[in-house]
Design a protein around this nucleic acid. Structure first.
Lengths: 242, 242
DNA sequence: GAGGTTCGGTGGTCTATACCAGTATAGCGA
DNA sequence: TCGCTATACTGGTATAGACCACCGAACCTC
């Protein structure tokens, strides 16, 4: 039963509830889930409220709705990636460099607006902030600021992020597989903080990368902002027509 | 006044109406548009119906909503999808911007080393150099320097590259279809020349893109170096695991 | 002038209800 | 057997009204 006094809106609670059922495997891709009217009766909410939860989950790609037939768990998208999703560690290894990391900050915080939005998290949600200076061959290459959000995320505070890759920890200990990511790549001048961490000159250019990473169920669990030394790093991409 | 008998739903008609106002320039980016209550009264529909229109336009990115403040026309973001091979013209059109070009240089030259290598051309080969200032909505966005190399390339010297897309000309008149591309994206400070062409400040950052484009037979025919204004242009990429 | 408080307006949530539009099926009739 | 139709579902559209959370400005107090 969803409670009105609970600080989170009802439709949001229902979304979480449905998400969990899918994540837990109770409902599998292709399964039909209860109708709007069933859900509204079962959880004692109005149909319009149930609709909002279903609508949002559908636009997020987790559900598929068909008029006259019902609402179904969406099949996970199998896309042929032209570009491969990798973390910094694997990225550097592929380029033949020795990857490294220095943890600058690791704490539980309230997420800033952009991270909240990216992670589809409630405004008061606590997320783990992990800021690392990334090295290649012992030299600083990038500053990475990750915001992580999933059930039990606070356990991450005890992990060793200097000697283990974030993605490796997530997949081995938390059963989270980075599956898809959206990123935006732009250029900018370095901030004062970045200048010091990266040991570059004032006014030097950096490559900025904002990445939202999704797990095997299509849920965003990571929002990362990175700043790469422009003189030491380029993105490579292969494009195809159609 | 929106009509119920019209075959399209009311919220949809309102969406179209609002879209037109924005496209016509009646409302400009950053402008606050009428509130939900005003719209519902003005068009004689319920507030929930107006909300649906506004909600959908907001998720499409055309509007930005702020609780307690109002609904605003979103600032258009220029983003380049990294997985699909497009030219500047198509790229801008997809973002609802008016693309444009000013030809700065168009001549037959001996290619510089990097271009030669990329185009797999003989050292003494003549290539067409096409340098254009690329515009969006009348404002300079990028400087594009293309080196083109294929049989009969010199005929390109008589083409009109200010009013026609390069890729359009190549496919319609030369039967060359851009099929695959490899590109490297980095950040840098602008050169003196770029500073003047792009009308930006000295020491401003730019996004640099080096692209090798291959035709339908796998032959490289184009090597392009571009410099984008960092404050107006972002590359967008979708990555997938495996 | 600096600091609160009040108040009107905004979008956000939620209810209850009604009818429309597609889909599947069971059952009827030729 | 085939085809129709009635029916009972599904999601989609639309209404009217209520209250909440948030923002900003105007005002009031010290």
């Amino acid at each position: 039963m969803l409670s009105k006094n609970y600080p989170l809106p009802k439709y949001y609670q229902l979304k979480e509830l449905l998400r969990e059922k899918i994540a837990a495997g109770e409902w599998k891709p292709g399964d039909m889930i209860p109708s709007e009217r069933e859900l509204s009766e079962q959880y004692n909410i109005s149909r319009m409220t149930a609709r909002q939860a279903l609508r949002e989950l559908a636009t997020e790609g987790l559900l598929r709705r068909e008029q006259g037939r019902g609402t179904f768990v969406a099949e996970p998208k199998i896309e042929h990636g032209l570009t491969r999703l990798t973390g910094f560690t694997e990225d550097m290894q592929k380029r033949g460099m020795e990857p490294g990391a220095q943890v600058v900050r690791l704490e539980l915080v309230r997420a800033p607006f952009l991270a909240l939005q990216a992670l589809q998290a409630a405004p008061e949600a606590k997320v783990v902030l992990l800021e690392r200076l990334r090295l290649a061959g012992g030299e600083p290459i990038a500053v990475e600021t990750c915001y992580l959000h999933f059930n039990g995320v606070e356990k991450l505070l005890n992990e060793d992020f200097e000697n283990h890759s974030l993605y490796q920890i997530l997949s081995e200990k938390y059963q989270i597989s980075p599956t898809r990511a959206e990123q935006k790549i732009g250029a900018d001048l370095c901030s004062r903080r970045e200048q010091e961490l990266l040991n570059i000159e004032e006014g030097a250019p950096v490559l900025r990368n904002k990445r939202i990473t999704f797990d095997q169920w299509g849920q965003p669990f990571e929002y990362t902002e990175s700043a790469y030394r422009a003189d030491r790093y380029v993105f490579q991409a292969e494009l195809t027509a159609f």
